[in-house]
Design a protein around this nucleic acid. Structure first.
Length: 864
RNA sequence: GCCCCAGUGGCGAAAUGGUAGACGCGGCAGACUCAAAAUCUGCUUUCCGCGAGGGAGUGCUGGUUCGAGUCCGGCCUGGGGCACCA
């Protein structure tokens, strides 16, 4: 009996699958389709354990669905534009394109080694002209629809990467890649009108019932829809020049208007800027506000400061009442209208401001059970429900009703209207980078910004850009940008900004439906395959990629290019792969490969292999180069084979949780692989046929058959509910049972039962350890390959035991057990229990009050 | 501050309201071996007991229930997200 040799078997089966084109996706109208997609990788050149986990998870689903009779699409591609290539180019003087394609070649080999059930004929990279040329095509369509526009805007400028960042790419005031503190700059910028879809993007979240609640909440918060009203305050007396119409504010609490103490505007509000131009004191205050940083820490600690302009406005409801106009640093110009009315009694921030500057605090919402004569607001604003008071025509109304009444009055007076405001901003998509998808427009002196005609596509990147220094290599190129204006034919300059790489990844899933189509998206193919039934990736894209992809899908649907309005029907966010960290006494990190783990007196210790120096075992953290706690998948494959690596990464923790890589763990998986093989290898070739019933009856055979059918049921359910770790645990358990019923010396009945068990087992492990499954299947004479075999079925009659062992509790504590026929009625069970001498002994001296029998489960006797 | 999620052995974890700790890792003991590795077998929540057996136990606390890791209320700790958002 030979030890299982993955180095021989694994490549053999990968070749067999490739030869048979087992994973080719076929548009088959007679079968239900299933589209499994994992977020495609950036081609860094090295596969890491996170990839192994992500793609193994998807592969389990893909292989399972295929076996269940679905027509499966499981493609792979490369998110290939982006800064790392430019950085490599700058540091090492290589060409980003060559560097990227080399990396792709290397990673493709590594991914193929994983034995994934991918249709490689659909592979593409976003840096293929064939891909980004099509992207330019739909970009121009969106341009025509007015979803693309250009304006001067204050943008997030990353001084290290020397490019603009989207709001979503600024985390805690720093660039999400470079970590540099982001500066504010005014630039002419390209935007996609994602805000046109803000309502839909919020509303449709409700339809995504197979998305994690967490992700939906994060998107909802990010879009930040709020219902309120816009409302104009008119100046009492002469209005400043240009402000005859008054000041427009946005509020979500029109019900509290009678509690207004002031009107405030942002420091960069046009009114503040006008006043600053005329009054040095205002100018000085505005300048002071600007000095405040934008980082979270600075905002957190920044004191609320204000400046009384001396201007006054009229209260819209209370005739004769006037409110002072302040400039305040806490009001944001880019939210709402950049102006507010302050109601200190019912808004904490307004209250802090009012206390500081001695403004009146007048409560207008009365909390339940408070006396209007005595109710006062102290240091805490009252934001809860209640009845309006001190408010003229709103008196006595509950908050929600008062809001509606106040808005109705504002609208009747012509001073404003109900309004919805979003936190979401339009998506700034231009990047000042050479390694990206060119924006297909030219700038003509005569005709301005001119989109190119479809016939001028693709606008391809030049192959001879110079990446030796920072900045935009496309801009620097000597000739590329010169072009003819499509309108006048005169000289024009190409746009040298390229698109954010998140644009590239916002539609790739649709391109996979037919990656070679002459149009961006082949409608018939997309109609068949989309939406993605199961999308799998990291939680870090909860807002960025997943929001952009939803937006582009809706925009393309409105363009008639897609029929679906949501790209991903099911989303699964998997956890990270972590590892223990090790440090030398001097604090230096040590990689796991150089560490030997020991246990002395039951306590784990780590030493440096080379010198025996004791190491400090640190926290378990996400695998990262800086902590040196990475393990190269290739090294693991070399020692244990691919299947063991896949199995461990799937078996250790629930998929949504972080999983901890450990040498011991993968060794355990490796042991399982070998033990499985031993069972298959020990089964005689002449064993009776596979339905298990052929060998006659005996107790061991019957028990094994029941266990087999139960196993099929349990593993099937585990895969369907993403509880892969539990499913694998059932397989481990079952293997132990097989070992307890060895082929050697087995009866004919048991051999037949084993044959049935092994036949099911080989197919059940297929999604997890596909190579081992094939080798095992072949060993017991399975027809064809596992990838062609249907998923095993179970006989419900065999998943239920004929005799049930019921635990018996007395007053909720387990005191013994009895056997009863399955489905026995409570009265019958009760009799068995009370006749049991052991139970009777337990009940001595007690009076039975009640006997609870849960059919086939448990008995509880209440006695005193 | 607001919104999610989680808390179970030495560790990763498992348990339709029904025998808590399956399965794996680690550990201990034994078998095989000249020896080691590999492999195999047994034990491994904790306390009392030689034992049979018994007590306690799922972050804390109260409740619902014949019965709670699971449901409800209050708290503690950790993780994630959002936040001068009017």
């Amino acid at each position: 009996m030979a030890r299982y040799n993955p180095k021989e078997t694994e490549p053999k089966w990968r070749e067999a699958w490739a030869d048979a084109q087992s994973f080719r996706a076929v548009q088959d109208p007679t079968r239900p389709k299933y589209y499994v997609l994992e977020m495609f990788p950036y081609p860094s050149g090295r596969l890491h354990m996170g990839h192994v986990r992500n793609y193994s998870l998807g592969d389990v689903i893909a292989r399972f669905k295929r076996a269940r009779g679905f027509s499966v699409l499981h493609p792979m591609g490369w998110d290939a534009f982006g800064l790392p290539a430019e950085n490599a180019a700058m540091e090492r003087g290589v060409d980003p394109k060559g560097w990227t394609y080399d990396n792709i070649a290397r990673m493709r080999d590594e991914l193929k080694e994983l034995g994934l059930s991918i249709d490689w004929s659909r592979e593409f990279a976003t840096c293929d002209v064939a891909y980004y040329g099509q992207q330019q095509a739909w970009f121009l369509e969106l341009f025509k629809r007015g979803l693309v526009y250009r304006r001067e805007a204050t943008v997030n400028w990353d001084p290290v990467d020397q490019t603009v960042l989207a709001n979503e790419q600024v985390v805690d005031g720093r660039g999400w890649r470079s970590g540099a503190v982001v500066e504010k700059r005014k630039l002419n910028q390209w935007f996609l009108r994602i805000t046109d879809y803000a309502d839909q993007l919020t509303d449709d979240l409700e339809t995504l019932d197979r998305w994690p609640e967490k992700v939906r909440v994060m998107q909802e918060n990010w879009i930040g829809r709020s219902q309120g009203a816009r409302l104009r305050f008119h100046f009492a007396g002469a209005a400043p020049q240009g402000f005859d119409a008054g000041i427009e504010v946005y509020t979500t609490r029109p019900d509290t208007l009678f509690g207004a103490a002031f009107v405030g505007v942002a420091a960069d509000h046009p009114l503040a800027e006008r006043l600053a131009g005329a009054d040095p004191k205002v100018a000085a205050f505005v300048a002071e506000c600007r000095r405040g940083g934008s980082s979270e820490a600075e905002i957190e600690t920044a004191e609320k400061i204000g400046f009384d302009t001396g201007l006054r406005v009229r209260h819209p409801f209370a005739a004769g009442q006037e409110l002072p106009v302040w400039i305040a640093n806490f009001i944001l110009m880019d939210y709402g209208t950049g102006a507010i009315f302050g109601c200190p009694a019912h808004d904490q921030r307004d209250l802090d401001f009012a206390r500081k500057y001695g403004l009146p605090v007048k409560p207008v919402v009365l909390p339940p059970c408070e006396d209007p004569a005595t109710f006062q607001v102290g240091d805490e604003a009252y934001v809860g429900p209640g009845a309006i008071f001190n408010s003229d025509f709103l008196d006595g109304l509950p908050v929600e009703e008062a809001k509606a009444r106040a808005v109705a009055r504002i609208e009747a007076d012509g001073d404003g209207q109900g309004a919805t405001v979003f936190r979401l901003r339009d998506w700034g998509v231009a990047r000042q980078r050479g390694w990206g998808c060119p924006i297909p427009v030219v700038h003509c002196e005569k005709d301005g910004v001119v989109p190119l005609p479809r016939s001028a596509l693709p606008v391809a990147l030049p192959d001879d850009m110079e990446f030796g220094k920072p900045g935009n290599a496309l801009e620097r190129h000597p000739t590329w940008k010169h072009a003819a204006c499509p309108i006048c034919g005169g000289p024009a300059t190409r746009e040298t900004d390229t698109l954010d790489t998140f644009v590239d990844s916002s539609w790739y899933f649709a391109r996979f439906a037919d990656p070679h189509a002459a149009e961006p998206i082949d409608k018939a193919a997309a109609d068949y395959w989309l939406p993605v039934d199961q999308y799998i990736g990291g939680i870090e894209h909860a807002v960025l990629h997943l929001l952009y992809a939803r937006f582009i899908t809706k925009a393309l649907a409105d363009e008639g290019m897609l029929s679906v309005r949501e790209p991903f029907a099911g989303l699964f966010t998997q956890g990270m792969v972590t590892h223990e960290t090790y440090r030398r006494q001097n604090g230096e990190w040590v990689e796991p490969g150089a560490v030997e783990l020991k246990a002395e007196a039951g306590i784990r210790a780590a030493v440096l292999v080379e010198t025996g120096e004791p190491l400090v075992i640190g926290d378990v953290e996400k695998m990262s180069k800086s902590k040196k706690n990475t393990v190269a998948p290739g090294d693991i494959f070399e020692v244990y084979g691919v299947d063991a690596a896949r199995l461990f990464v799937l078996s250790d923790s629930p998929p949504e949780r972080d999983t901890q890589w450990s040498t011991g763990g993968v060794q355990g998986a490796w042991r399982f692989v070998n033990r499985v093989w031993e069972e298959f290898d020990s089964q005689p070739a002449a064993a009776p046929g596979g339905d298990g019933a052929g060998g006659g009856e005996d107790a061991a055979a019957t028990a094994l058959r029941r266990a087999t059918h139960k196993l099929v049921k349990q593993v099937t359910e585990a895969i369907e509910t993403f509880r892969f770790n539990s499913g694998i645990a059932r397989l481990y358990e079952f293997l132990n049972l097989l070992k307890a019923n060895p082929a050697e010396g087995a009866s004919a009945a048991l051999l037949a039962a084993r044959q049935e068990a092994l036949s099911a087992f080989a197919r059940l492990i297929g999604p997890f350890t596909p190579h081992l499954a094939e080798e095992s299947w072949a060993r017991i004479g399975g027809a064809g390959m596992v990838v062609e075999a249907p998923w095993p079925e179970f006989d419900p009659a065999l998943t239920e035991d004929a005799v049930k062992v019921l635990p018996v509790q007395v007053n909720g504590k387990r005191r013994g057990e009895i056997s009863a026929p399955a489905g026995a009625e409570p009265a019958e069970v009760e009799k068995i229990v009370l006749d049991d001498p052991e139970i009777a002994r337990r009940l001595e001296g007690l009076t039975i009050r009640k006997v609870i029998v849960v059919k086939d489960r448990i008995v509880n006797i209440v006695a005193a």
